[in-house]
């Protein structure tokens, strides 16, 4: 029986520096057994670097890190023996078949051949690749390769599975297949750690998450808590015909004082508000008439835009 609130990963002021560039600038977090923990952030936010440090394939430059109550610096192999890793680029062995990718990988964990074959067959079933068992890896689609990488990460019955952007680059159908598998893992009680820049992914899969930006954690909590804390209940999306970017920014300035925060995007303006009807009335009072007005519940994406919104503005410049 796993202990209640058993902590699998503990990081305090964790840092990673590459030359002059500090990729991770002092992050603190704890990951508990049984939870699905997410790292949300744009590219270059420091997510993958943090994953690599937890995976004991990157030495922290500062701070404190413990995985399974052990020190990655001295106990790397012992920690890795209990981890399952799905890297961003899969790193499947292209010289081997689908089935061999699993059995050979099992060998790296010291799993005996007979057990490895049984486990491999079982995992191929789980990721729905049994029919492709004898194929070369390069003949698989991107989604299948990712599923194979997920199966491979489970070969040692890990205590924690680390997935770095599990659905990046996959088509919508393939994404759903991956999500389905991950959801099933979660239900089996496997602890999952994933990075993503897809809000819907984080919202669907994560019990708890941190938002990273420029090497720092800028917010953490459950998806619901984050939405409650950082954005209003509702969001009104305003579009003004074909107007975009600078024209929209101009209009946005005229919206000051209406609702909560105003976020001009390239194609629309977001108005955060607790009451959409009030906002509509206020717009009418100022004689601002958008061509379309959409009222919806706030999502994690809004949290993300709110927290890192300026990044978009910088991108435009």
């Amino acid at each position: 029986m796993p202990l209640e609130n058993e902590i699998l990963v503990r990081a305090r002021d964790l840092r990673k520096r590459y030359g002059d560039h500090e990729a991770v600038r002092g992050v603190d977090f704890e990951i508990q057994r049984g939870e699905a923990f997410g790292f949300l952030g744009a590219n270059g936010a420091g997510k993958s670097t943090t994953m690599r440090m937890i995976g004991c394939v990157s030495e922290p430059s500062g701070g404190h890190l413990e995985v399974f109550d052990r020190d990655p610096h001295t106990d790397g192999p012992a920690i890795r023996a209990r981890l399952g890793v799905v890297p961003q680029d899969n790193t499947l062995d292209t010289m081997l078949t689908v089935f061999e990718n699993l059995t050979v990988y099992a060998g790296y964990f010291g799993i005996k051949r007979k057990e490895a074959r049984a486990k491999a067959a079982e995992l191929l079933e789980f990721v729905q690749l049994t029919a492709r068992s004898g194929d070369q890896v390069n003949d698989l689609s991107g989604g299948m390769q990712r599923r194979l990488a997920i199966a491979r990460s489970l070969i040692n019955a890990p205590d924690l599975v680390i997935l770095d952007e599990p659905t990046t680059g996959l088509d919508p159908q393939a994404r759903h297949l991956v999500w389905e598998r991950l959801f099933q893992l979660k239900q089996q009680g496997v602890s999952i750690l994933l990075t993503t820049h897809y809000m819907d992914e984080a919202e669907q899969l994560c019990d708890r998450l941190v938002v990273m930006d420029e090497g720092r954690i800028i917010a953490q909590g459950s998806p619901r808590e984050l939405i409650d804390t950082y954005v209003t209940k509702e969001v009104v999306e305003l579009r003004f015909g074909g107007k975009h970017t600078t024209a929209l920014a101009e209009i946005a300035r005229g919206l000051d004082g209406i609702g909560g925060q105003i976020e001009p995007l390239p194609d629309r303006i977001l108005v955060y508000t607790d009451d959409a009807d009030d906002t509509a009335a206020a717009l009418e009072a100022r004689e601002i008439r958008p061509t379309s007005m959409l009222d919806r519940r706030a999502t994690l994406e809004d949290v993300f835009l709110r927290l890192t919104g300026r990044a978009l503005v910088e991108d435009e410049a």
Binding site: G55, V57, G76, P77, A78, R80, A81, L83, V85, P87, D89, N90, T91, L92, D93, T94, M95, Y105, Y108, F109, G110, R152, N156
Partner: peptide, 14 residues
């Protein structure tokens, strides 16, 4: 090219 070792080093292998 094949990044075979990248995958391997995620296991107990050194």
């Amino acid at each position: 090219w094949m990044k075979v070792y990248d995958g391997i080093l995620n296991t107990p292998m050194r």
